[in-house]
């Protein structure tokens, strides 16, 4: 029982990263119809930024947790204006290629300066202990991540469902053309939403720095799973991406714990789940079939 609870907890912690990343991808896809391949690279930049801020300027974790997401959101907005924006009228493949190229460039720039080896980043001292849950104790930092990620997801959900800003974003996401016909400048919302999605990736990166290896390729493997998460949740579905993020974290953790005798299954469980979901619901768990234009 204790073991099960611990594995569940860990699954949720991994899931927290998936959820934050998938949420960003989902809002970007919803608004721009762009599959942002560079999302993993921005996650990496978040972690690396925290490392650089600490070592070059002595900026602590807590400040990095604000500075990096905001800084990367601004960078994302600049990139959207400079490049992504120009290609949105063309086949989505163009933006996929653009963001893929961007990924390679960002990875290589970091590699050029800091090498491929992982860079050290320590857990902030306030979160270095363990929390006692009676049956078991759990690293404070993990509890913090889980709480923080859930709070961010709930906050984003609240803004999206309960505010006028959220309403407009939902409308732009669901039917951009119709929304323009109702007097709303959809284009003006695109840039900040792109920046926001990138900021979420950066936030996940800063959170990852103390517990994951910080290196130029840290986002490259992760992002493949996050794409699977987004597909499972339903492309562009905000709720779906978060739910699938936590769900896949759990499935992976349980798979590792209880299917370790079947490594073939536990290693590929994410993609097995994805295949099953797509056969059953081609638009993903919470996705809608695109309305005919």
């Amino acid at each position: 029982m204790t073991g099960f609870l611990q594995n569940t907890f860990n699954g949720l912690v991994s899931g927290a990263f998936y959820a934050l990343l998938a949420l960003g991808l989902a809002v970007i896809f919803g608004m721009l119809r762009v599959v942002n391949f560079a999302h993993g690279a921005f996650y990496m930049l978040g972690a690396f930024g925290a490392y650089v801020l600490l070592t070059e300027a002595g900026v602590p974790f807590w400040a990095a947790l604000v500075i990096m997401p905001v800084g990367l959101a601004l960078l994302g907005m600049a990139l959207e204006r400079a490049f992504v924006h120009r290609l949105t009228r063309l086949d989505p493949l163009y933006n996929f290629l653009l963001t893929f190229g961007l990924t390679l460039i960002l990875q290589d720039l970091v590699k050029l300066r800091y090498g491929v080896q992982s860079s050290p980043y320590e857990t902030p001292s306030a979160l270095n202990g363990s929390v006692d849950f009676g049956l078991f104790d759990f690293p404070t930092y993990r509890v913090f991540i889980l709480g923080f990620a859930v709070a961010v997801c709930v906050g984003v959900w609240w803004v999206l469902t309960r505010t006028r800003v959220g309403m407009v974003v939902r409308a732009c996401t669901e039917r951009p053309e119709l929304t323009r016909a109702f007097g709303i400048d959809v284009g003006r919302w695109v840039t900040p939403v792109f920046g926001f999605g990138i900021g979420l990736a950066g936030l996940a990166g800063v959170l990852a720095a103390p517990m994951r290896a910080v290196n130029p390729l840290m986002g490259a493997d992760l992002i493949i799973v996050v794409f699977a998460v987004v597909v499972i949740g339903g492309l562009g579905s905000i709720f779906g991406s978060v739910a699938a993020g936590f769900g896949i974290g759990l499935v992976q953790a349980w798979g590792e714990a209880y299917l370790s005798d079947f490594p073939i299954i536990s290693q590929t469980i994410v993609f097995i789940v994805m295949a099953v979901v797509l056969l059953w619901r081609p638009a993903g768990l919470f996705g809608r079939e695109e309305a005919p234009a």
Partner: peptide, 17 residues
């Protein structure tokens, strides 16, 4: 009819300025 699935009836009405 231009109904938004992700917006409530009230939101559908109040979306346009």
């Amino acid at each position: 009819r231009g109904s938004y699935a992700t917006l409530s009836v009230t939101e559908n009405l109040t979306l346009p300025p």
